[in-house]
Write a protein that binds this DNA or RNA. Structure first.
Length: 886
RNA sequence: GGGCGAAUAGCUCAGUUGGUUAGAGCGCACGGUUCACAUCCGUGAGGUCCGGGGUUCGAGUCCCUGUUCGCCCA
């Protein structure tokens, strides 16, 4: 794309950003290029149905920075995008649509419903690209994959078959979490537990053959209809004589054995509990141990079933009220007291989850977890930040088997066919099965359920690359370089990818796991639709630009912790973009019509030594420092620090000092010096744009095209290598900065109008030569009258009535501001400075006179203290002189 | 109940293997029509490094303990 001519006075992000994305894409820059070790990120696939939110903006910012940086380093770089079908969530969106039309999915039937799902999905598919385009995600669209595509679908069936054959997938009747609203089973991880205020009801059951009762405490009285035992702790003296006897269940009249089991907490309630194996995980286990029957009293829609006597057909909460009322009426309710308990809710819809017994498919985790734990413990999989490792290990060590079937229609159908003749299950990687594997019968029906969305997500690092086929992509790009995702799905997704990669590919799917936190509002509140405190990325990027949003997000806080985002921060990053924009305008104007030398690789050549000024040498050295620091920070995944470092370099060093200093050479008569400055200006700006490109791809690409260059695009321009440091230049220029600052400070303190130029005399000791060469720069920056600036190594007779500034031990500035300076005021200042210098000297002296310190501290620390002492003493001496001269 | 994290300027965060005078950005105050930029420039104020104890010549940093907030797991 050609960009020519004068550029606008202020940066307008939306005009610039809209131009580049498709241009990059059409030129093929998003596809891996070249040879060498690839850099690969498999993108966490956004839900097809989802709107763009800040979570997406954050992951795009982070991944795109890594990807663009590595691409510029010359690695063949693949960032593979995709979309997730989002099981329950996806189905729910379409069901809601149907609801408005007054139809249920059951009315439509499975086939027509799925057709409708696909129509919907096809509509939404394009939106992911559109959203990622806004954010500048440089991912390879030719490899875009949807979890329901034929490839990943076959991967799912293949994985299922392999695990089934190894006995790692089984079907079993177990206690599971049931969401009555979604009408499906959920895995343990999809249930959110929250403390809620409720009651503890104490009920008494008559003991058979006596006129005594046993009191049990429960948080869920309605489940008593399904009680099949009463249990106490084996060591509980209070109930020892009752163990072995029986109680009668009120309302129902069932006989309940009273048994002893160590799982009962004698401290809770009365120490005796009712046992409802069909509706409580602990009771289920007690039931297993004692061979108790499980009586299910609920329907799948959250109403009571035929085992609930008169409460059949009522909702659970109606049943609870009814049961309590009847118990009370009949004298079985002993008391009701307030109680806090943990309630499980469906993480999708918030409905209270019911534990129920149901036949489902499970993955046997222990054999799969062992290799995953080893990989993490041996460091083959690293977490960034590291602290997530211990959370991962302790969670995985205690993981239960994973329930993978879901009672939904939208998703990967379980690849199991049951024979109508012999009942045998046939598991197939094919889409359909004609013949029973055992009896050859041809009348089969497929399991009606689908698989947990995370089952297909677990295979994502290799199903996207063609597995189970041995494709070139799989060979070349597996394992990927880093998995970047939110810490909230560490167990739900990351863990499952790790064990799946190890199981199916024999190798962990990534060596590094970079975990980002959640984006919160300026007050640290979670952004949510209902609170209305969310910041919409579409709106923010339209106003401030995606570059600004990206930089605001990535510099907002360290990796792995939640970050606070305010529009104000985005705005200040937009201002930063404007700063670079205007710096470029300045450079372009300063170098108009000048031939800029290019290096062999087509980039701007570094300026030669000839005619280079102190400022030139200083900024080049600072550029080297910045380049190596930023590269190091990126290598350590410290993106936030890298971003901030660049911000500071550009604004505080390049713009505030270097650009200002160049105005002298550019306006001067020395042709060589001017050429050197022009070359340096462009050279450093070019490096800045390169370093900044991963963070702010749009504005940097735009500006780069205005600079002289021979490459095609900044997105594929080489990443800068740090040059030499010039410590002498840094020291000297920093002294210059100190001199200028102290003059400015004095001017401000004494209300010297900015427009007024003043004379100055500088005594600069050993730095006199260096400063002498910078007289023009100093006078310009400090607003000193050029003809009246004197720089000497020593000033024997300072100007009369001069204000005296002590910059360093041997550097003083005299500002002859006769008439402007109140002598009392100056005395006060000097005295304050003197007091500071004396106390500093005192501190250093005290330290150095401590023999423990001089003996035990390292030599360089002691040396530094000696130097500080000398400086402070010299400074104090100078200040005393000035004071007495006053 | 177990675990993790955080606590440093008004706000958001840096602060290397401990090195003695704790930094940045934003915000704030004051001053500015300096020919890149008011989306800007200059100057400045602002800190018991959460409390207590310990180790050390030396602690924001290491150890113990407590407080507050947040998160994860059961």
């Amino acid at each position: 794309m050609q960009t020519t001519g004068e550029i606008a006075r202020t940066y307008r992000p939306n005009e610039v950003e809209s131009r580049w994305y498709d241009w990059w894409d059409h030129h093929g820059y998003f596809a891996p290029r070249g040879t060498g070790e690839p850099f690969v990120i498999i993108m966490p696939p956004p839900n097809v149905t989802g709107e763009l939110h800040m979570g997406h903006a954050l992951f795009v910012a982070v991944e795109d920075i890594l990807v663009r940086w590595r691409r510029m380093q010359g690695r063949p770089t693949l960032w593979l995008p995709g979309a997730d079908h989002a099981g329950i969530g996806g189905q729910w969106v379409v069901e809601r649509e149907l609801l408005e039309e007054g139809v249920t999915r059951q009315d439509l039937g499975r086939e027509r419903f799925l057709k409708r799902m696909w129509t919907f999905m096809d509509q939404y598919r394009g939106r992911i690209r559109e959203q990622l385009r806004i954010l500048g995600a440089s991912c390879d669209w030719s490899r875009f994959t949807f979890t329901m595509d034929p490839g990943p679908a076959r991967a799912v069936r293949t994985a299922f078959r392999q695990l089934y054959d190894k006995g790692l997938i089984y079907r079993g009747k177990r206690l599971i979490n049931w969401c009555p609203r979604c009408r499906t089973v959920l895995s343990d991880l999809e249930v959110d537990h929250e403390e809620e205020q409720s009651s503890l009801w104490t009920i008494r059951y008559p003991i058979e053959g006596t006129d005594r009762f046993i009191e049990v405490a429960t948080t869920r009285p309605e489940t008593m209809l399904g009680d099949t035992a009463v249990a106490v702790h084996p060591d509980d003296e209070r109930y020892r004589d009752l163990v072995g006897r029986s109680a009668t269940l009120p309302i129902i009249g069932r006989t309940l054995p009273i048994l002893a089991d160590p799982a009962v907490d004698p401290e809770f309630g009365t120490g005796a509990v009712k046992v409802t194996p069909a509706h409580d995980p602990n009771d289920f286990e007690i039931g297993q141990r004692h061979g108790l029957p499980a009586v299910n009293v609920m329907n799948l829609d959250g109403t009571m079933n035929e085992n609930a006597a008169e409460f059949e057909g009522r909702t659970i909460s109606e049943a609870r009220k009814g049961v309590v009322a009847r118990l009370e009426r009949e004298g079985y309710l002993v008391r009701t007291e307030p109680h806090t308990l943990s309630v499980g809710r469906c993480d999708r819809c918030g409905t209270v989850v019911e534990p129920m017994i149901s036949e489902q498919w499970f993955v046997r985790m222990a054999p799969l977890n062992a290799p995953a734990l080893r990989a993490v413990q041996e460091g083959r999989v690293r977490f960034i930040p590291e602290r997530f490792r211990s959370a991962y290990v302790s969670w995985v060590e205690h993981e239960h088997d994973w329930c993978i079937s879901r009672q939904l229609w939208w998703g990967h159908r379980i690849p199991v066919w049951y024979c109508d003749e012999c009942g045998e299950a046939t598991v197939s990687v094919e889409q359909s099965v004609e013949r029973c594997e055992r009896c050859g019968g041809t009348s089969l029906h497929q399991d009606p359920d689908v698989l947990d969305t995370w089952f297909s997500a677990a295979l994502w690092p290799f199903s996207t690359l063609g597995w189970p086929d041995e494709t070139e992509d799989l060979e070349r790009y597996y394992p990927s370089s880093v998995m970047e995702t939110g810490y909230d799905i560490l167990f739900l997704w990351v863990h499952r990818m790790i064990f799946s990669g190890l199981e199916f590919m024999g190798q962990a799917p990534f060596p590094d796991v970079y975990l980002h936190g959640q984006v919160r509002d300026a007050q640290g509140q979670r952004m949510s639709k209902s609170k209305g405190n969310g910041i919409d990325p579409t709106i923010v990027t339209a106003e401030y630009g995606s570059d600004a949003l990206r930089l605001a997000l990535v510099t907002a806080g360290p990796v792995g912790s939640d970050l606070k985002l305010s529009v104000q921060r985005v705005e200040s990053m937009r201002n930063f973009a404007n700063k670079i924009w205007n710096a470029t305008r300045y450079v372009l104007r300063a170098t108009a019509g000048v031939e800029i030398e290019l290096a062999d690789d087509g980039s701007i050549a570094p300026p030669g030594e000839d005619g280079s000024s102190l400022a030139d040498r200083w900024i080049l050295s600072r550029l080297s420092a910045t380049t190596s620091e930023v590269t190091g920070m990126l290598e350590r995944y410290q993106l936030n620090e890298a971003g901030r470092r660049l911000y500071e370099f550009v604004w505080s060093e390049y713009c505030d000092w270097y650009l200002e200093a160049t105005k002298v050479a550019l306006g001067g008569t020395n042709e060589t010096a001017r050429r050197s400055t022009q070359q340096t200006l462009v050279y450093v700006l070019d490096r800045i744009l390169r370093l900044l490109h991963p963070f702010m791809p749009f504005v940097t690409e735009e500006l780069w095209h205005h600079l002289p260059h021979r490459g095609d695009a900044l997105i594929v321009a080489p990443w800068p290598e740090p040059g030499e440091r010039d410590e002498r230049a840094e020291r000297e220029f920093e002294l210059l900065i100190e001199v200028v600052r102290s003059v400015r400070n004095a001017r401000a303190e004494h209300d010297v109008p900015p427009a007024r130029l003043i004379p100055a005399t500088i005594a600069a000791g050993t730095a006199a030569d260096a400063l002498l060469g910078q007289a023009d720069v100093i006078s310009r920056l400090a607003r000193i009258e050029p003809g009246s600036l004197e720089i000497q190594s020593e000033v024997t007779s300072p100007p009369e009535d001069a204000l005296s500034l002590v910059v360093a031990s041997d550097v003083q500035v005299y500002l002859p501001l006769a008439g402007m300076v109140d002598p009392e005021e100056q005395r006060r200042r000097l005295e304050a400075d003197l007091a500071a210098a004396r106390s500093e000297a005192e501190r250093a002296r005290g330290l150095l006179s401590n023999e423990q310190f001089t003996r035990r501290a390292p030599e360089h620390v002691v040396e530094r203290e000696r130097a500080r002492l000398a400086v402070a003493e010299e400074r104090a001496r100078l200040l005393e002189d000035r004071l007495s001269a006053l």
